[in-house]
């Protein structure tokens, strides 16, 4: 039995929403970062489901690209986080307030 694509899409949308909510509500930069990763993975799920529906490989290639980019993003993001901790000894984003939001 093959599940309908819409189930996957709804599940992915739910995961995406959870991630987005986390980004907006959490104050710890690392956890925000993890939420962003979760959102990216929900996109991967969407792409896989849609690629299966279309019987097309392009969507799966897209997923690999997203994974590669996510890895690069982690490298850059953690470096910036560490540089920030050196100045502030904290990863709470409420304390990032030198520049007016």
């Amino acid at each position: 039995m093959m599940l309908e694509t819409s189930y996957y899409l709804v599940l992915a949308a739910l995961i995406f929403t959870v991630g987005a909510t986390g980004v907006l509500l959490r104050r710890n930069a690392l956890i925000i970062f993890m939420c962003i990763e979760m959102m990216l993975n929900s996109v991967n799920l969407t792409l896989i489901a849609l690629a299966r529906q279309w019987g097309d490989l392009e969507g799966q290639i897209f997923v690999f690209m997203i994974m590669a980019v996510a890895a690069a993003e982690v490298a850059v993001g953690l470096a910036i986080l560490i540089a920030n901790v050196r100045h502030r000894k904290s990863i709470n984003i409420d304390e990032i307030n030198l520049l007016k939001w």
Partner: peptide
């Protein structure tokens, strides 16, 4: 650094 941090978090989002 703060600019980079904001840019990164919001940009990745």
């Amino acid at each position: 650094i703060e600019a980079a941090m904001k840019y990164f978090l919001l940009g990745a989002f």
